[in-house]
């Protein structure tokens, strides 16, 4: 009996200490992101080897199957790929002529709105395993000039934006996170609106679309470049379903992002030419309406 009395206060003390410690850790992680390195370290030295080891039998069977594939099949595939490459080559030529033509037209219009931006490829180091968190960690940070709010793309479309920057790594918030929003416009109708993440994998929500707007299933939406954060004209998502509810002020429209959010190995970090303008614009927006119109 005496033992029980000695244990009780110890347990109570223990729980107070562990609650305090946990809350402290959570605050530190939430506020300062200094613990991103701990996550990184763990993923590099523990998570990756374990996943690699578990993946081993699958890789081995894939490799074995590839070895057994007949020569005939390989030849066929080779021919198919050659044809495909030819097609792509043709498309590249077509595109380059279009680009130069576009350039000339823009010069004629004396427009400064150009698509060019500097791009660097970064490696994905860590993907959050918690299904509620749509985040990545990539191997570029302050050292390479990465900044908060920087757009991140893959070969197929917009992937997300940088939310925190470390010295050598940074965290990318994916499009599908419920905290993410991208200003987009329809390619078909130039209708401008906002694509918001839904928190569910591979699903975006198109916001503030009145029932009278012309949006169809299959419509392609690209970045409008209006927030000066994403470069203009990169593909974002395609409309999957359109729901009109009678009486509701807006339609419910869901889209599927074009970027391969969960298959990408490498991503493209974009240094847009307009990034430095964003600050000025936000200053102008803060001013009262009268002053802007005078200026």
């Amino acid at each position: 009996m005496g033992l029980h009395f000695r244990r009780r206060p110890k347990l109570g003390f223990g729980i107070v200490v562990s609650v305090l410690l946990s809350v402290g850790l959570m605050l530190a992680d939430h506020r300062y992101d200094a613990l991103a390195r701990v996550h990184l370290f763990a993923s590099h030295y523990v998570l990756e080897p374990v996943q690699f080891a578990i993946d081993w039998p699958f890789r081995a069977t894939r490799w074995a199957r590839m070895g057994m594939q007949s020569e005939h099949q390989l030849l066929l595939e080779n021919a198919r790929l050659r044809a495909h490459e030819l097609l792509l080559q043709a498309k590249v030529h077509e595109r380059s002529s279009l680009v130069s033509e576009n350039q000339e037209l823009r010069d004629l219009l004396q427009s400064s709105n150009r698509l060019d931006a500097t791009v660097k490829a970064a490696q994905i180091l860590f993907v959050s395993l918690d299904p509620g968190l749509n985040q990545l960690v990539v191997d570029m940070g302050k050292q390479e000039g990465v900044f908060v709010g920087q757009p991140v793309l893959d070969a197929y479309g917009v992937l997300g934006q940088v939310v925190t920057v470390g010295y050598r790594v940074s965290r990318v918030l994916l499009l599908t996170d419920h905290q993410s929003g991208v200003p987009v416009e329809s390619v078909r109708t130039n209708f401008r609106t906002l694509a918001k993440g839904s928190g569910v994998a591979n699903k975006l929500q198109l916001m503030y679309v009145p029932p009278t707007a012309d949006v169809k299933v299959g419509d392609l939406f690209v970045t409008s470049g209006l927030a000066l954060r994403y470069p203009k004209g990169y593909p974002v998502a395609r409309v999957v379903s359109v729901n009109r509810k009678p009486g509701a002020p807006y339609m419910t429209i869901s889209m599927q992002p074009l970027a391969k959010l969960y298959q990408a190995q490498q991503v493209l970090m974009v240094w847009s030419l307009h990034a430095d303008l964003a600050h000025d614009v936000s200053e102008v927006i803060k001013q009262p309406v009268g002053e802007v119109s005078h200026a």
Binding site: S18, V19, L21, S22, V23, G24, L25, M26, A28, D29, H30, L35, V38, H39, A42, S43, V46, L47, F126, V127, S128, L129, D130, L133, Q135
Partner: peptide
């Protein structure tokens, strides 16, 4: 650390 959730969440 493994899941990438907020550090201390599962601890709590």
């Amino acid at each position: 650390v493994f899941l990438g959730t907020l550090l201390g969440l599962h601890a709590l």
